[in-house]
Computed example of a mutant assay.
Amino acid sequence: MNSLQEPPSRVESLSEISRFRAGLHACFTRRGDTLFELADAMLCAQGPVRSPVELSLEPEFRRGHGSVYDALAAGRISQDRLRRLLVGVSAPARAGEPLMFAIDTTPHARPDAEYADERTMVQVRGKGGDRWLPGWPYSLVVGVQWGSSSWVDPIQARRLRPGEEHTDVTIEQVTGLLADVRATGKQQPADPPPLVMLDAGNYATDLTHALADQNVQLLVNRPGFDAMPRS
């Protein structure tokens, strides 16, 4: 019987997935094996996952349902490692063009979670108008692709704690992002500086001052003003 060779493209795709899974496993610093199986179960679920315990019913999760809550309560994930892993697989820039990223906040309303810690009032948009509800605001970092695609590459979701200034969190995210693009080889010395686009809610002057020594371009949206590019 003659064996059939896999097409090179398929072999390379499987190799990339294997490397990504190994990198993801390294991000789980406590209860790592359980969290890794939960991630596999979530990716392989055939429908929406409405509660964590449902993941224990997936064949990819080989542990008891009690370990799900143990992992969620006691498990730990290295946010820096995960961000760098996701930067490494984000879309490359076009030749001669900068890498593009966007940072914006999004609300996660939790009006019924009376015992959830650190809730603040978040603005939820809807057809009937905006509402303010208790919940958690997140600052999201995504990679933006060139061309007509509306897809973005998720890189980081950072919850804004009560009392934290949004601009300070943005500065921290941009600084970490720039370190990651250098460390992963996405940014070479001759390449144009990465372009980071920011929606309203950030102070352009504070960003400019804090990131003055960084090789980055900023495009800040300020209501009532023209967008402010910085190089």
Rank of each mutant, 00 (worst) to 15 (best):
R161E: 12
A39F: 08
R131T: 09
E118S: 14
Q173T: 02
T170S: 01
W151T: 11
P193M: 11
D153A: 10
P52T: 00
L178I: 09
R94E: 15
G32F: 01
V122W: 00
G163P: 10
F61E: 00
P107R: 03
D206F: 06
V87S: 09
P7W: 02
E54R: 05
Q79F: 10
D104S: 02
V124L: 04
A45L: 01
H65V: 06
V174M: 10
Y138S: 03
G135P: 06
R182L: 14
F101T: 08
C44L: 15
L86Q: 04
P193Q: 13
V89I: 15
P107I: 04
R158Q: 10
W136D: 07
A95M: 08
G147F: 11
L43Q: 09
G32M: 01
S67M: 01
A116E: 11
T170E: 00
D168E: 15
P111R: 04
D191L: 02
A71L: 00
P154C: 04
T120H: 04
R110F: 14
D112A: 14
W146V: 09
M197L: 15
P189T: 02
D213H: 14
M121R: 14
G185P: 07
I103F: 01
A113R: 07
E16G: 08
L133D: 08
S9T: 13
G176E: 10
G224K: 09
I171N: 07
N2I: 13
A39K: 00
E6S: 10
T175D: 12
L24S: 05
L35E: 02
D153T: 10
V122Y: 01
L82F: 03
M197F: 06
M42Q: 03
P92K: 13
P48W: 06
V174Q: 09
V216F: 09
A26L: 06
G147S: 14
F225Y: 14
D191A: 05
R83D: 05
P229H: 11
V49R: 02
M121L: 15
P192F: 12
S150C: 09
D213E: 15
Q46N: 13
V49A: 03
P192W: 12
S90K: 07
H108L: 15
G88W: 01
C44H: 11
E37H: 05
V174W: 07
A116M: 09
W132P: 00
R182I: 12
A39P: 00
E6P: 00
P92V: 12
V124P: 02
T29K: 01
P162T: 11
F36E: 03
G96F: 08
D130Y: 04
G126W: 05
R222I: 14
W146E: 14
V124H: 02
P107K: 02
Q214L: 13
S15N: 08
L99H: 08
H25A: 14
V196T: 09
P8L: 14
Q214Y: 06
L99W: 07
L140H: 03
A113Q: 04
A45E: 03
N2Q: 14
S51N: 04
V220R: 06
A102D: 01
L133H: 03
H65K: 11
V152W: 01
M42S: 05
V87R: 05
P92Q: 13
T106Q: 05
M100D: 06
V181P: 05
R63C: 02
A116R: 09
A157I: 00
P137V: 05
G126M: 05
A157M: 03
R158A: 07
I171C: 13
M100Y: 07
D153I: 09
A22C: 11
R50F: 06
G224V: 08
R131H: 01
A91V: 13
G163M: 11
